[in-house]
Design a protein around this nucleic acid. Sequence first.
DNA 1: GATGAATGAGTATTCATTCAT
DNA 2: GATGAATGAATACTCATTCAT
Lengths: 199, 199, 199, 199
Amino acid sequence: MSKRKGQKFDKIIDAAVLVIAKHGFHQAQVSKIAKEAGVADGTIYLYFKNKEDILISLFQEKMGSFVETSNLKIKQEKTIEDKLNVLISSHFAQLERDYHLAVVTQLELRQSKVELRQRINQVLKGYLLLIDEIVQEGKKSGTFHVDLDPLLARQMIFGTLDEVVSNWVMSEGKFSLTNQTNTVQEMLLHGLTGKKERG
Amino acid sequence: MSKRKGQKFDKIIDAAVLVIAKHGFHQAQVSKIAKEAGVADGTIYLYFKNKEDILISLFQEKMGSFVETSNLKIKQEKTIEDKLNVLISSHFAQLERDYHLAVVTQLELRQSKVELRQRINQVLKGYLLLIDEIVQEGKKSGTFHVDLDPLLARQMIFGTLDEVVSNWVMSEGKFSLTNQTNTVQEMLLHGLTGKKERG
Amino acid sequence: MSKRKGQKFDKIIDAAVLVIAKHGFHQAQVSKIAKEAGVADGTIYLYFKNKEDILISLFQEKMGSFVETSNLKIKQEKTIEDKLNVLISSHFAQLERDYHLAVVTQLELRQSKVELRQRINQVLKGYLLLIDEIVQEGKKSGTFHVDLDPLLARQMIFGTLDEVVSNWVMSEGKFSLTNQTNTVQEMLLHGLTGKKERG
Amino acid sequence: MSKRKGQKFDKIIDAAVLVIAKHGFHQAQVSKIAKEAGVADGTIYLYFKNKEDILISLFQEKMGSFVETSNLKIKQEKTIEDKLNVLISSHFAQLERDYHLAVVTQLELRQSKVELRQRINQVLKGYLLLIDEIVQEGKKSGTFHVDLDPLLARQMIFGTLDEVVSNWVMSEGKFSLTNQTNTVQEMLLHGLTGKKERG
DNA sequence: GATGAATGAGTATTCATTCAT
DNA sequence: GATGAATGAATACTCATTCAT
């Protein structure tokens, strides 16, 4: 699809993140991205098939490692509680690290048209499967409730994390995301009524 | 803002929902909405300031009663558990009742540009306050954990409900939403580990 | 295809002829045509599907009557000699009358891409059939040679007329076209060796 | 203008004919020609000033010998009738020999813009002069009519040959071109009425 | 001589909004 | 109030040509 050779590929991706975060998705013209990347408009098309390809590549490039990073960290933990904790902290940490990118993925890219969103969702699928694994393992080990609905569980976990991050982005990153890790973990494990054993 | 007098106002709103659900947000031109509503293009501008105003009005009109309906039902319950249950069932029921509308609010309207989304979020605020009240009351009554972070709690509740509904819409409404009420309530109350006292 | 109602349709067609003749086919942008026609760019698209539709309509509109006019005049003549004479004089007269149009049809429109040229050729077919009829009738009546190859005959007649007109256009209309009628008729009837009975 | 040294010059010309015949004039990009010729894009510009220069050179290169070949053959004939016959047969034969080239010169190159066509016409001038000579000689010798208009005569001859060849190309070469020589000669000599003394 | 990555000018078309009737 | 013809701003992509290597 898009040729990854050369530094220009990365330059353009980074420029796209910056331009979209700065001017918004609908004001992110190809010419603006090219200017920000310090290349000619036509150069964009030596590395990307079309504008949509920039956005998809951006998501794959920047979010592709997301799953892998989380996956590796989770594998290193033994208990389900720790795996969940690491899932949350990794999710928060990776997005907190790059506020511009978080703006793009949490807000701006959701404005794209359906076809593009579907391509983006495919990248997300890998992450959802990662959550599914934790849920399954948690049930098997007895840590999670035996009757837990796996799909609903995943939706609660992802829905919560996504909503927290979105609120963080909309608050313009004014509070620490990673600091919330333990609290969110407790809430997911024991719900609204849950006893906070640590505190 | 928009003059609510006359039946044409409603006709246009309904036409907008239909056109967006049928053709998607990006193919919902003013002229198409006008045709579906059986009025001239120019007539739209006698009832709405601009296209954005149609969409905001749509959201206010269709979602305005949402909060009130949920609010009334919640007030009728005594225990926090029941209030939460009614919040969930009301949320699910109202969206399940009108699939077209659910498509528009869960998927299509999220493709709009930031300014519009912010206007839409203002309408949502009333709903978030409703959740906040339940959380606050739950803490006061001792049903919810005393150290519960109210903001995070609200984010978990809304994030979960929103994610569940979005998944339902994307599955094209192929499973029952309201049937999930009790399970979701249990999960929110006791988390992934929680004992399911009812079942 | 294109809505013919209103004076704007004709205005745009005439503007297209003028702009193409003045600036050449490759410099005839839609915006230039719109400006010449005194309408907004977008107005063009209320009357024509796209730019190509303007050019095809132009050809149909301006050349459509060409065949009919020639046809009617030919029908009024009795002898084959007179029918041929009228074919030639009508061909020359109609193109000489509007030099701009002749430039467009003889030179500029031949630069268009294949698909467009094929659409244009379909309009020409009617004219070729008219020539075919004269050839056929001339053979039947004994005026033309009994062994005359009808296809070659048509190619000689049309090829000659087209080449004469093209030379006239390229000479920038500096000599009279209609004045050549009789000479061309003689040449077609009796060839390079032929005795000029009239003169 | 264009440096003729080296085999690459010819390679590029031949590639251009092939690419234009295969993909059509408007899809014959420089990069495509370069690829077909097995050279880099930039190399083209070591041998040709610009794209237009390729096309003009192509025409000169491939059509340059056309005139000379015809000229030599004509000089070998004594009577005007035979000279005309050879002109026609040579014209037909040379184009029939290379269908690809005929497509390019009869159809595709006529889609080029006016400036290019004028350059191409200059190459044609040599051929038209050859025809002019025959006409002049025919009149002097008494074979052609004494009052024959030389310019019109040339236009009839060239117009007829060109139209016949164009029809042959458009029919995708499905009939023999050279077989038509005698018939066309008869028609040019004696016109539509002419007695076919040979047949 | 040869390369090919980089350049950047140029243009058809859509659609929200207006305003004369 | 209602109409709908007219407006015109705004933007992705191609490809001939260059020039550093």
